[in-house]
Design a protein around this nucleic acid. Structure first.
Length: 470
RNA sequence: GCCCGUUUGGUGUAGAGGUUAUCAUGCAGGAUUGUCAUUCCUGCGACCCGGGUUCAAUUCCCGGAAUGGGCGCCA
């Protein structure tokens, strides 16, 4: 299952995955394994128990003559999900009976146990069943997330999340980006567009940062050339939807000597790399299969990793408005494109698509504008863009305003005081490269990859309007 | 913030103004079994809170709380 190198630990000589993958070489050998008691069968003179760890499953087989009466009945009386350590010899499992015409499964291996220790017994009943066929409400699941995570398809989701981040990082590093971290505790108020969580920083009022935006830009002024950051962003919006969280992880980049088109290129190449790598990674394929096995029990269509073609379609704002109007959507030039109108737009766009050249009025003060670039109504366009998938916005980005006089004007136009942003504005006073960047919602891209219909599925311990615990 | 829905064993559900409150899963006990999320038998366990209408409310009405969905805003 995993390409990782598993060294023996104090509690086990082999992982359960190793018992299966290296089983033919281990036959007759004594091993010590450990795991969760997934299921057990047999209350008589013998007992079969399935053990599960982070690498796979293995059956242990216990008989009174090899394990002893006392430990056999201990195993038989143990509640499922208890953790145990077992020692015994590896053997090939007897193949299961198969119906005529069916192909027998590949050989599997089991451990004939000679010794057993209960590490931590599980209380019954479980707040939610790890192997139960009954479905469980999201709230119950999140209240008992540690147990929910033991379910195979939920576990697979978070292993895929790690892979998305890994391949994303890998790509950006290959394009010369340096991983950075910017502060999450900030003194200035909002850069616009959202409410912030206030907090007390010793004697000074402060906030949790809504994005690394302003600091990424200072890195450009600092000559770091190309930076990326994977970190939390906090928004105090009281939204309650399938796609919003009050704490989410943003995959952010900022790139010097580049415009909006240049960083759209970085973004589509990175997403292409992530999708392609996942489609070719055996571990990822197995996670996708696990998710699809679960989806089948819920009568949901299987998910498929379709590597998107490069370049992604680009639909400029001006054209988007025209297309939406042609399709009968209610919208005027200058309006934001809401979810319903995005549905109309996405009818002819199966996967990712860029929406470049938004009206300057709809974009934050730090977005660049090129004089003379106006839309069909004659109003000023910006070098800001979105990346959508279907109705959902995954990324917001653009070329940044590096001209200090225009930057200060933009601040004033949006009702902000340049003096409050002095720490930021100062970065433009002593030479600065033209630069561009974007922020990608990790949870949202994971939703697209895994078919999750709620963003909370993609976060271990989601923070939403009603939940700060666990 | 606005609109709509839901709330029944540990979990997920069915249902009705008067029922022994359904089913599955789980749990307990027993039988069986080189099993394959074992099979079979027996048992255990529930109507969100407050007020109102009624002879009678878990069921109808009002309020609250919790929860699900849609919208706005955003990533």
């Amino acid at each position: 299952m995993s390409n990782a190198q598993w060294h023996p630990t104090n509690y086990r000589t082999h992982t359960l995955g190793q018992i299966q993958s290296e089983g033919s070489d281990l036959i007759g050998q004594e091993v010590t394994i450990a795991g969760f008691l997934h299921a057990s069968r047999g209350k008589g003179a013998i007992c079969f128990a399935d053990l599960r760890d982070g690498t796979g499953m293995t059956q242990i087989f216990a008989k009174s003559d090899s394990l002893g009466e006392e430990k056999l009945s201990l195993l038989q009386s143990l509640n499922r999900e208890s953790t145990i350590q077992a020692t015994g010899t590896v053997a090939e499992k007897r193949p299961p009976k198969v119906k005529e015409g069916e192909t027998p499964p590949p050989p599997a291996y089991e451990v004939l146990v000679s010794d057993l220790h209960v590490i931590a017994s599980a209380e019954a009943p479980l707040p939610l069943g790890v192997t139960d066929t009954v479905s469980v409400g999201l709230d119950t699941r999140l209240d008992n997330r540690f147990l929910d995570l033991r379910r195979a398809h939920v576990n697979a989701m978070f292993r895929l999340r790690g892979k998305v981040l890994q391949y994303g990082r890998e790509h950006l590093i290959n394009e010369g980006f340096v991983e950075t971290h910017t502060p999450k505790i900030v003194a200035t108020a909002t850069e616009g567009g959202t409410d912030l969580f206030p907090m007390q920083y010793f004697d000074t009022p402060a906030y949790l940062n809504q994005s690394p935006q302003l600091f990424k830009q200072l890195c450009m002024s600092g000559g770091l050339e190309r930076v990326f950051e994977v970190g939390p962003a906090f928004r105090a919006e009281k939204h309650d939807t399938y796609r919003h969280l009050n704490e989410f992880i943003s995959f952010d980049i900022e790139c010097s000597w580049a415009d909006d088109n240049d960083v759209m290129g970085v973004l589509e190449r990175m997403i292409h790399h992530i999708w392609k790598s996942i489609a070719h990674d055996d571990e990822c394929k197995s996670h996708i299969n696990t998710i699809n096995d679960y989806r089948a029990t819920q009568d949901e269509e299987p998910i498929e990793v379709i590597v998107p073609e490069l370049p992604f379609p680009r639909v400029e704002y001006d054209d988007a408005i025209r297309i939406i109007k042609e399709k009968g959507g209610k919208i005027e030039w200058g309006d934001d494109i809401d979810a319903e109108n995005s549905d109309l737009l996405a009818e002819d766009l199966p996967q990712f698509y860029f929406l470049p050249r938004w009206p300057m009025d709809l974009k934050p003060f730090y977005i660049h504008q090129v004089e003379g670039e106006t839309g069909s109504t004659g109003r000023q366009l910006s070098r800001g863009f979105d990346l959508n998938f279907g109705r959902d916005e995954l990324t917001s980005g653009g070329q940044r305003e590096h001209r200090i006089d225009i930057l200060c004007e933009n601040l004033k136009d949006m009702g902000l005081d340049p003096e409050e942003f002095e720490f930021y504005v100062a970065g433009f006073r002593h030479g600065v490269p033209p630069h561009a960047g974007w922020g990608l919602g990790v949870e949202r891209i994971l939703m697209k990859l895994t078919g999750a219909s709620n963003v909370r599925e993609t976060v271990l311990f989601p923070r939403d309007r009603k939940r700060v615990c666990p």
